[in-house]
Design a binder for these strands. Structure first.
Lengths: 129, 129
DNA sequence: ATTTTACTTGACCTTTACGTAAGAGATATG
DNA sequence: CATATCTCTTACGTAAAGGTCAAGTAAAAT
């Protein structure tokens, strides 16, 4: 009666290197749609659930916040396998994210300059004494 | 009896473009030593206080966290004018901070690559259909 | 002197992404 | 069956850097 493929939360967490809290949290904020439950209420995750979770983790790795993902939750409904609809929107998001990253890099670079300059000025003060 | 130079918190905040809460907060966490008070308890800030606050804001601008500043609070005791003692330590900090920034930049750069790659793979999937 | 600002402390609120604990029920194993 | 090991929900805690009241004084302006 139990699909070989269905997994409980602890096992899934261990597999993906995250905690059960994280999985429940993603469900809590609606990133992870309610999974099936066993008779007693225990969650079981099927292949699609796992795919979706992996996808979320991938996006997170790329620096996309859970909040940003939520705004797009409608678009990457992996359950529905409508990869056609999800991808254009996702690419849009990724592009936006790339420019954000570029901006951050630019900011850090100028910050670096400033720090170096400041450092030099202090060194000067030290040497002039 | 009142030094022309002494300023109250609202005025000081306005001058530096921050809020009074921020100034009180810095005092709260010990970044800003207790200032003099008027008879009624109103804080007044003298030149040194203002210098110190400006210094803190400068460091903050450079991306140094309040926490990092606290660890160094002993070293940049501007009140004591011991610019000799503060600078070497400060330079040390700045150097450390520069390398932190470099690391962040490197991370963001590789993140950028990953995102672009991911984007490309998705584009491929789209085009192959 | 009186009104209008400004200042005081205290304490709770915000965001993000979970951590952690409590108490109770479910599942797996010997 | 008993026990060990999940899993469940609820709900408060955390870090950073202040924001935002609220009630009560003090200082400044008229």
């Amino acid at each position: 009666m139990n699909d070989k493929k269905n997994v409980q939360i602890g096992e899934l967490a261990k597999r993906l290197g995250i905690t059960t809290r994280t999985i429940r949290y993603y469900e809590e904020i609606g990133l992870m749609g309610p999974p099936e439950r066993l008779g007693g209420g225990t969650r079981t995750f099927n292949k699609d659930d796992i795919l979706r979770l992996k996808f979320i983790l991938k996006l997170k790795e790329l620096g996309i916040s859970l909040n940003e993902m939520q705004e797009l939750a409608e678009h990457f409904d992996i359950h529905k396998q409508d990869f056609d609809t999800i991808t254009p929107k996702l690419i849009e998001i990724l592009d936006l994210h790339i420019s954000k990253v570029d901006e951050k890099i630019a900011n850090l670079s100028s910050l670096r300059h400033e720090i170096v300059d400041y450092r030099l000025r202090i060194m000067d003060i030290l040497n002039k004494k």
